[in-house]
Design a protein around this nucleic acid. Structure first.
Length: 569
RNA sequence: GGCUAGGUAGCUCAGCUGGUUAGAGCACACGACUCAUAAUCGUGGGGUCGGGGGUUCAAGUCCCCCCCUCGCCA
């Protein structure tokens, strides 16, 4: 039995995520976790909310709530949606936890002791009215280049020119509107990533089996221009992990917090600790190679925007600590999912968001489409037409109808129990041979995290059931040789639990319904297909299930198309 | 402008280190079947593999130039 540590990139606390965010990390991570559990391996599947930083503070202020309270509420909202999508986290943590605070401070101290932190004095805009330093993008003014009046401090959205806040004409705070801004000196801690460049470079080079998307992004950051740059890991904020040195204020860093991108990945460890504190489990067994984690395989899932932090900054933190923490073994990264010819847009309400998706259809419909179209090799696109055809064809016609046709046939000819009599022949041998080949291929693709290929293979396995029924034609056999029809029905009914077990990582609810209908709890993996197809004996009672997947009608599709075109506020 | 990844049947995509007539699903046409959610199964039509040049006995697959998308960065 192997041990798999699996983490999904942690979603920011602010707002509800769209389907592109879901398919880029949480959903494929869940697929992998469910598969590894089904194969009998020990799995620790971790996710969390990323709660610190300025956007959370501002969103809380807008909602008229203290930021901690706002985060608690939003965490529960996201947790509820995750449950709705059947994301099987062993723990869904919070980066604002006490565990993360302590670990983040610990790593900072370790890095300082290793000489990997340096102080940098820089000038930053300070707003007297807001009583705080302002990140560049929270300052707006007139663009000196094109005259656009709402240019941000980091970039003009009109002419795309990169800006410095001091370049802006009439700069003002986005938060309060105040123009009473001044440049002030402030000190920050920088992580000396540049000092670790060669070490990181060699490490990335050793990962020859990683997706090209992952390694190419890492190498670009390592080699572009002047190479890997040092990175500020503190901010002048109040909402975050306080910069402390072994329990005392960090000299020169009083009142500052660690940057959200420093503490967020550390939350993977902290969330596991949160899990341990809640369940009495042992979290270091998953994370400390000196405490049992040397046999753990650690896989991270994320969208491509998260790759630099997970290939460079976070490993720099781990390696630089000089402590035996578990380093990632495989990074599965994803491109973006576009929406109907453009991008999903949170601000313009363009596209389908996780809560809305669950309002209109059950989780399995979304899981199937998103996973079978996962943006692995390139950006992919969600269109309602494609969604409708895939769901109707794959789920309703191929899988759902298979379950329906064989259960109803058996019920009408033999009653609601597996019929007795008859023998297998060549058709059954052929089916077993085909299924065995395909299931082994499915396993290979799942192990390799080739998600689209896994989905295609699974679909082919479903199709094999329909082919078998078509070829063996029990409805004809019944007229001349009822025993033969009984043997066919018995085998076909055994295909239902087999399909349930194989399909569960993709469509867990449907899998439960299928097992429920067949009145079995056996979820063991079909290592031996022939044995699996005789698992339920003659006489075993079943219940003819309700329609497993309903079809999406044209009118519904058109309706949704209009509804999600971009009006949500 | 730099960098990354792409540009393969109407649509969505497979095609590993170059090798027999370029594949799948959907859509389309025809046929079979009638147990089933008018579902299923079979057969077939359809591609000068973005354009041009080169290497090779042989290139979608390698090299060069150009065009076009997506994203990141300047």
């Amino acid at each position: 039995m192997a041990r798999h540590l699996i983490t999904s990139a942690i979603p920011y606390i602010n707002g509800i995520k769209h389907l592109g965010n879901l398919v880029g990390s949480q959903l494929p991570a869940d697929l992998f976790a469910r598969y590894q559990r089904a194969r009998g391996h020990e799995v620790m599947f971790i996710c969390a909310t990323d709660e610190h930083g300025t956007p959370a503070e501002l969103a809380a202020a807008k909602a008229g709530k203290p930021v901690a309270e706002y985060c608690t509420e939003m965490h529960e909202v996201q947790a509820e949606i995750a449950r709705g999508f059947k994301l099987s986290f062993d723990h869904f943590g919070r980066s604002s936890s006490a565990q993360n605070r302590k670990l983040t401070q610990h790593f900072a101290v370790q890095l300082a002791k290793a000489g990997l932190l340096r102080e940098v004095t820089e000038k930053q805009m300070y707003s007297k009215a807001d009583g705080r330093f302002l990140p560049d993008r929270y300052i707006e003014g007139t663009c000196p280049n094109c005259g656009f009046e709402s240019a941000r401090g980091d970039q003009c959205d009109n002419c795309t020119k990169q800006l410095d806040p001091v370049d802006l004409i009439n700069p003002h705070s986005v938060i309060s509107g105040s123009t009473d801004l001044e440049l002030r000196e402030t000190k920050h801690l920088f992580l000396r990533q540049s000092a670790m460049k060669d070490q990181l470079d060699a490490w990335i080079d050793s990962k020859t089996d990683w997706p090209i998307l992952t390694t190419s992004i890492a190498k670009k950051w390592l080699h572009d221009g002047d190479g890997l740059q040092d990175r500020g890991i503190t901010r002048d904020l109040s909402w975050g992990v306080p910069a402390q040195f072994e329990g005392a204020p960090w000299s020169g860093m009083e009142g500052k917090v660690f940057y959200v991108w420093f503490d967020a990945p550390i939350e993977y460890l902290a969330a596991t600790q949160e899990w341990a504190d809640k369940t009495g489990g042992d979290w270091e067994r998953w994370w400390r190679t000196d405490k049992g984690a040397d046999d753990v395989t650690y896989t991270e899932f994320m969208g491509k925007d998260n790759v630099p932090f997970h290939t460079l900054s976070f490993p720099a933190t781990i390696l630089g600590s000089n402590e035996p923490w578990k380093l990632v073994d495989y990074i599965k990264s994803f491109n973006y999912l576009n929406y109907d010819g453009g991008q999903f847009s949170t601000s313009r309400g363009r596209g389908v968001f996780m809560d809305q998706a669950l309002e209109i259809l059950p989780a399995d419909y979304w899981r199937w489409w998103l996973l079978s179209h996962a943006p692995e090799s390139a950006d992919s696109e969600f269109t309602w037409e494609n969604f409708q055809t895939s769901v109707n064809k794959d789920l309703a016609d191929v899988l759902g109808n298979f379950v329906s046709r064989i259960t109803k046939f058996t019920r009408s000819k033999f009653g609601e129990a597996l019929p007795e009599g008859g023998a297998w022949g060549e058709q059954e041998d052929a089916l077993i041979a085909e299924l065995t080949t395909r299931i082994r291929a499915y396993e290979t693709h799942m192990e390799a995290m080739d998600i689209r290929k896994s989905a295609a293979e699974l679909r082919a396995i479903w199709v094999a059931g329909n082919e078998y029924l078509q070829a063996s034609a029990p409805w004809s056999a019944f007229k001349t040789d009822p025993d033969r029809a009984a043997a066919i029905a018995r085998l076909a009914l055994n295909l239902i639990p087999l399909y349930a077990v194989l399909s569960a990582p993709f469509i867990p609810d449907a899998a439960d319904s299928m097992l429920g209908a067949m009145q079995t709890e056996d979820r063991s993996w079909p290592q031996d297909v022939k044995a699996a197809l005789t698992a339920l004996p003659a006489g075993h009672a079943f219940v003819t299930p309700e329609v497993l997947f309903r079809k999406i009608a044209d009118e519904e599709r058109e309706d949704w198309q209009k509804r999600f075109a971009g009006t949500r506020d």
